[in-house]
Protein backbone atom coordinates (compact mmCIF):
# COMPACT_ATOMS: atom_id res chain seq x y z
CA UNK A 1 0.00 0.00 0.00
CA UNK A 2 1.25 3.38 -1.00
CA UNK A 3 1.81 6.26 1.37
CA UNK A 4 1.73 8.52 -1.62
CA UNK A 5 -1.85 8.08 -2.71
CA UNK A 6 -4.50 5.55 -2.04
CA UNK A 7 -8.26 5.31 -1.97
CA UNK A 8 -9.84 2.61 0.16
CA UNK A 9 -13.24 1.07 -0.35
CA UNK A 10 -14.89 4.14 -1.75
CA UNK A 11 -18.66 3.87 -2.06
CA UNK A 12 -20.99 6.42 -3.61
CA UNK A 13 -24.74 6.08 -3.46
CA UNK A 14 -27.13 8.47 -5.15
CA UNK A 15 -30.45 7.65 -3.54
CA UNK A 16 -31.08 4.05 -4.53
CA UNK A 17 -28.34 3.96 -7.15
CA UNK A 18 -24.91 2.73 -6.13
CA UNK A 19 -22.72 4.51 -8.66
CA UNK A 20 -19.44 3.25 -7.22
CA UNK A 21 -19.00 0.23 -5.01
CA UNK A 22 -15.95 -0.67 -2.99
CA UNK A 23 -13.41 1.10 -5.15
CA UNK A 24 -9.78 0.92 -4.02
CA UNK A 25 -6.63 2.07 -5.70
CA UNK A 26 -3.07 2.66 -4.67
CA UNK A 27 -0.57 4.64 -6.71
CA UNK A 28 3.16 5.19 -6.52
CA UNK A 29 4.80 8.44 -7.58
CA UNK A 30 5.26 8.65 -11.35
CA UNK A 31 2.74 5.98 -12.25
CA UNK A 32 0.38 6.38 -15.18
CA UNK A 33 -2.82 4.48 -14.53
CA UNK A 34 -5.91 4.21 -16.69
CA UNK A 35 -9.50 3.93 -15.49
CA UNK A 36 -11.86 2.52 -18.10
CA UNK A 37 -15.36 1.14 -18.30
CA UNK A 38 -18.62 1.51 -20.21
CA UNK A 39 -20.79 4.61 -19.96
CA UNK A 40 -22.21 5.17 -16.52
CA UNK A 41 -19.74 2.76 -14.91
CA UNK A 42 -18.87 5.32 -12.23
CA UNK A 43 -15.48 6.57 -13.45
CA UNK A 44 -16.18 10.29 -13.15
CA UNK A 45 -17.80 9.66 -9.80
CA UNK A 46 -14.50 8.17 -8.59
CA UNK A 47 -12.74 11.39 -9.62
CA UNK A 48 -15.39 13.44 -7.89
CA UNK A 49 -14.90 11.53 -4.66
CA UNK A 50 -11.12 11.75 -4.75
CA UNK A 51 -11.11 15.50 -5.38
CA UNK A 52 -13.82 16.27 -2.87
CA UNK A 53 -16.30 17.51 -5.47
CA UNK A 54 -18.81 15.16 -3.85
CA UNK A 55 -18.41 13.50 -0.49
CA UNK A 56 -18.18 9.74 -0.57
CA UNK A 57 -20.87 7.72 1.17
CA UNK A 58 -18.08 5.71 2.78
CA UNK A 59 -14.42 4.89 2.35
CA UNK A 60 -11.20 6.82 2.75
CA UNK A 61 -8.78 8.77 0.61
CA UNK A 62 -5.21 9.05 1.89
CA UNK A 63 -2.84 11.54 0.31
CA UNK A 64 0.79 12.02 1.36
CA UNK A 65 0.12 10.18 4.59
CA UNK A 66 -2.93 12.24 5.53
CA UNK A 67 -6.58 11.33 5.30
CA UNK A 68 -8.31 13.91 3.11
CA UNK A 69 -11.65 12.17 2.64
CA UNK A 70 -13.94 14.94 3.87
CA UNK A 71 -11.75 17.88 2.86
CA UNK A 72 -13.38 20.56 0.70
CA UNK A 73 -12.62 20.57 -3.02
CA UNK A 74 -10.47 23.70 -2.96
CA UNK A 75 -8.37 22.44 -0.06
CA UNK A 76 -7.65 19.17 -1.82
CA UNK A 77 -6.74 21.08 -4.97
CA UNK A 78 -4.31 23.26 -3.05
CA UNK A 79 -2.73 20.13 -1.56
CA UNK A 80 -1.67 19.02 -5.01
CA UNK A 81 -4.44 17.00 -6.64
CA UNK A 82 -5.64 18.62 -9.85
CA UNK A 83 -8.15 17.50 -12.42
CA UNK A 84 -9.75 18.22 -15.74
CA UNK A 85 -13.42 17.83 -16.51
CA UNK A 86 -15.11 15.46 -18.90
CA UNK A 87 -17.63 18.14 -19.89
CA UNK A 88 -15.10 20.95 -20.28
CA UNK A 89 -15.50 23.55 -17.54
CA UNK A 90 -13.32 26.47 -18.52
CA UNK A 91 -13.85 30.06 -17.40
CA UNK A 92 -15.32 30.76 -20.80
CA UNK A 93 -15.47 34.54 -20.67
CA UNK A 94 -11.86 34.90 -19.48
CA UNK A 95 -8.88 34.74 -21.80
CA UNK A 96 -6.89 31.54 -22.14
CA UNK A 97 -4.07 33.27 -20.28
CA UNK A 98 -6.33 34.30 -17.40
CA UNK A 99 -7.69 30.77 -17.20
CA UNK A 100 -4.20 29.53 -16.47
CA UNK A 101 -3.23 32.44 -14.22
CA UNK A 102 -6.23 31.75 -11.97
CA UNK A 103 -4.62 28.48 -10.97
CA UNK A 104 -1.63 30.23 -9.45
CA UNK A 105 -3.82 32.22 -7.11
CA UNK A 106 -4.04 29.66 -4.32
CA UNK A 107 -0.28 29.85 -3.93
CA UNK A 108 -0.09 33.64 -4.06
CA UNK A 109 2.28 34.95 -1.43
CA UNK A 110 1.24 38.60 -1.63
CA UNK A 111 -1.72 39.41 0.53
CA UNK A 112 -4.77 41.46 -0.32
CA UNK A 113 -3.25 44.81 0.65
CA UNK A 114 -0.07 44.17 -1.34
CA UNK A 115 -2.26 43.61 -4.36
CA UNK A 116 -4.47 46.63 -3.72
CA UNK A 117 -1.54 48.97 -3.35
CA UNK A 118 0.36 47.28 -6.16
CA UNK A 119 3.46 46.81 -4.04
CA UNK A 120 6.62 45.73 -5.87
CA UNK A 121 6.56 42.27 -4.29
CA UNK A 122 3.06 41.70 -5.63
CA UNK A 123 3.87 43.10 -9.05
CA UNK A 124 6.91 40.88 -9.33
CA UNK A 125 4.86 37.85 -8.37
CA UNK A 126 2.15 38.76 -10.88
CA UNK A 127 4.75 39.11 -13.61
CA UNK A 128 6.26 35.74 -12.76
CA UNK A 129 2.81 34.13 -12.80
CA UNK A 130 2.15 35.61 -16.22
CA UNK A 131 5.44 34.33 -17.56
CA UNK A 132 4.94 30.84 -16.19
CA UNK A 133 1.39 30.78 -17.54
CA UNK A 134 2.60 31.76 -20.98
CA UNK A 135 5.19 29.03 -20.82
CA UNK A 136 2.52 26.50 -19.97
CA UNK A 137 0.35 27.72 -22.83
CA UNK A 138 3.35 27.49 -25.11
CA UNK A 139 3.97 23.95 -24.01
CA UNK A 140 0.38 23.01 -24.79
CA UNK A 141 0.61 24.70 -28.18
CA UNK A 142 -1.73 27.51 -27.18
CA UNK A 143 0.63 30.48 -26.91
CA UNK A 144 -0.75 32.18 -29.99
CA UNK A 145 -4.23 32.00 -28.47
CA UNK A 146 -3.31 33.41 -25.08
CA UNK A 147 -5.50 36.47 -25.42
CA UNK A 148 -8.50 34.69 -26.91
CA UNK A 149 -11.49 33.99 -24.77
CA UNK A 150 -11.46 30.39 -23.62
CA UNK A 151 -15.01 29.85 -24.83
CA UNK A 152 -13.97 30.84 -28.36
CA UNK A 153 -11.25 28.19 -28.70
CA UNK A 154 -11.84 25.08 -30.81
CA UNK A 155 -12.82 21.99 -28.90
CA UNK A 156 -9.45 20.24 -28.98
CA UNK A 157 -7.71 23.40 -27.80
CA UNK A 158 -10.15 23.73 -24.96
CA UNK A 159 -9.20 20.27 -23.76
CA UNK A 160 -5.56 21.27 -23.87
CA UNK A 161 -6.29 24.48 -22.03
CA UNK A 162 -7.96 22.48 -19.30
CA UNK A 163 -4.77 20.49 -18.89
CA UNK A 164 -2.67 23.68 -18.81
CA UNK A 165 -4.95 25.14 -16.18
CA UNK A 166 -4.75 22.02 -14.04
CA UNK A 167 -0.96 21.92 -14.36
CA UNK A 168 -0.73 25.53 -13.21
CA UNK A 169 -2.01 24.56 -9.77
CA UNK A 170 1.31 22.67 -9.42
CA UNK A 171 -0.18 19.25 -8.77
CA UNK A 172 1.64 16.04 -7.93
CA UNK A 173 -1.36 13.93 -8.83
CA UNK A 174 -3.24 14.76 -12.01
CA UNK A 175 -6.65 13.32 -12.85
CA UNK A 176 -7.60 13.53 -16.51
CA UNK A 177 -11.24 12.85 -17.36
CA UNK A 178 -11.41 11.77 -21.02
CA UNK A 179 -8.70 14.13 -22.27
CA UNK A 180 -8.96 12.81 -25.84
CA UNK A 181 -12.74 13.03 -26.14
CA UNK A 182 -13.75 14.88 -29.28
CA UNK A 183 -10.23 14.88 -30.69
CA UNK A 184 -9.39 13.49 -34.12
CA UNK A 185 -6.92 10.57 -34.42
CA UNK A 186 -4.05 12.92 -35.19
CA UNK A 187 -4.73 15.08 -32.12
CA UNK A 188 -5.14 11.97 -29.99
CA UNK A 189 -1.79 10.67 -31.13
CA UNK A 190 -0.11 13.94 -30.24
CA UNK A 191 -1.78 13.85 -26.85
CA UNK A 192 -0.18 10.49 -26.02
CA UNK A 193 3.27 12.00 -26.46
CA UNK A 194 2.30 15.15 -24.65
CA UNK A 195 0.95 13.39 -21.56
CA UNK A 196 4.16 11.34 -21.30
CA UNK A 197 6.28 14.46 -21.64
CA UNK A 198 4.31 16.29 -19.01
CA UNK A 199 4.59 13.44 -16.58
CA UNK A 200 8.37 13.36 -16.92
CA UNK A 201 8.86 17.10 -16.91
CA UNK A 202 6.62 17.88 -13.93
CA UNK A 203 7.18 14.63 -12.03
CA UNK A 204 3.46 13.89 -12.20
CA UNK A 205 1.48 10.88 -11.22
CA UNK A 206 -1.47 10.50 -13.56
CA UNK A 207 -4.79 8.74 -13.31
CA UNK A 208 -6.83 9.03 -16.46
CA UNK A 209 -10.23 8.06 -17.74
CA UNK A 210 -10.55 7.41 -21.43
CA UNK A 211 -12.88 5.67 -23.83
CA UNK A 212 -10.38 5.57 -26.66
CA UNK A 213 -8.86 2.10 -26.11
CA UNK A 214 -5.86 2.69 -28.33
CA UNK A 215 -5.03 5.78 -26.34
CA UNK A 216 -5.27 3.98 -23.00
CA UNK A 217 -3.40 0.87 -24.12
CA UNK A 218 -0.60 2.93 -25.55
CA UNK A 219 -0.20 5.25 -22.63
CA UNK A 220 -0.99 3.46 -19.39
CA UNK A 221 1.17 1.03 -17.49
CA UNK A 222 -1.71 -0.26 -15.47
CA UNK A 223 -5.45 -0.24 -16.06
CA UNK A 224 -8.47 -0.61 -13.84
CA UNK A 225 -11.84 -1.51 -15.29
CA UNK A 226 -15.14 -0.44 -13.78
CA UNK A 227 -18.57 -1.79 -14.65
CA UNK A 228 -21.76 -0.75 -12.90
CA UNK A 229 -19.67 0.65 -10.07
CA UNK A 230 -17.70 -2.56 -9.52
CA UNK A 231 -14.04 -3.05 -10.28
CA UNK A 232 -14.09 -6.03 -12.62
CA UNK A 233 -10.45 -6.18 -13.66
CA UNK A 234 -7.04 -4.71 -13.07
CA UNK A 235 -3.73 -5.28 -14.80
CA UNK A 236 -1.37 -4.39 -17.62
CA UNK A 237 -2.84 -3.37 -20.99
CA UNK A 238 -2.12 -6.85 -22.37
CA UNK A 239 -3.87 -8.56 -19.47
CA UNK A 240 -6.90 -6.29 -19.75
CA UNK A 241 -7.24 -6.81 -23.49
CA UNK A 242 -7.60 -10.54 -23.04
CA UNK A 243 -9.72 -10.48 -19.91
CA UNK A 244 -13.07 -12.21 -20.64
CA UNK A 245 -14.94 -10.14 -18.01
CA UNK A 246 -13.82 -6.95 -19.67
CA UNK A 247 -14.74 -8.15 -23.14
CA UNK A 248 -18.16 -9.15 -21.86
CA UNK A 249 -18.72 -5.79 -20.15
CA UNK A 250 -17.82 -3.91 -23.30
CA UNK A 251 -19.82 -6.14 -25.63
CA UNK A 252 -22.75 -5.88 -23.25
CA UNK A 253 -22.65 -2.14 -23.26
CA UNK A 254 -22.39 -2.09 -27.03
CA UNK A 255 -25.63 -3.98 -27.39
CA UNK A 256 -27.27 -1.38 -25.14
CA UNK A 257 -25.98 1.48 -27.19
Amino acid sequence: MSHFFRAEQLVMRFGGLTAVNDFSISMEPGELVGLIGPNGAGKTTVFNMITGAISATSGRVVWLGEEITQFPLHVIASRGIARTFQNIRLFTDLTALDNVMVSFHHKLRANFWDAMFGLPAYRREERRIKEESLELLQEMGLAHMAMEKAGALPYGKQRRLEIARALATKPRLLLLDEPAAGMNPQETLELVGLVRELRDKYALTILLIEHDMKFVMRLCERIKVLDYGYTIAEGTPAEIQNNPEVIKAYLGSQTHA
Binding site: L73, L90, F91, M101, S103, H105, M116
Partner: peptide, 24 residues
Protein backbone atom coordinates in the same frame (compact mmCIF):
# COMPACT_ATOMS: atom_id res chain seq x y z
CA UNK B 1 -5.47 41.83 -9.38
CA UNK B 2 -5.06 38.13 -8.81
CA UNK B 3 -7.89 38.37 -6.28
CA UNK B 4 -10.20 39.89 -8.87
CA UNK B 5 -9.28 37.16 -11.31
CA UNK B 6 -10.26 34.59 -8.70
CA UNK B 7 -13.62 36.36 -8.25
CA UNK B 8 -14.27 36.26 -11.98
CA UNK B 9 -13.35 32.57 -12.04
CA UNK B 10 -15.95 31.95 -9.34
CA UNK B 11 -18.48 33.82 -11.46
CA UNK B 12 -17.64 31.77 -14.55
CA UNK B 13 -17.68 28.35 -12.91
CA UNK B 14 -17.56 27.94 -9.17
CA UNK B 15 -16.82 24.21 -9.20
CA UNK B 16 -13.94 24.66 -11.63
CA UNK B 17 -12.61 27.57 -9.58
CA UNK B 18 -12.64 25.42 -6.47
CA UNK B 19 -10.96 22.60 -8.34
CA UNK B 20 -8.14 25.08 -9.04
CA UNK B 21 -7.74 25.76 -5.32
CA UNK B 22 -9.84 28.91 -4.94
CA UNK B 23 -11.89 29.29 -1.78
CA UNK B 24 -15.17 30.90 -2.88
Amino acid sequence: SSYGRAMKAIREDEIAARAMGIDP
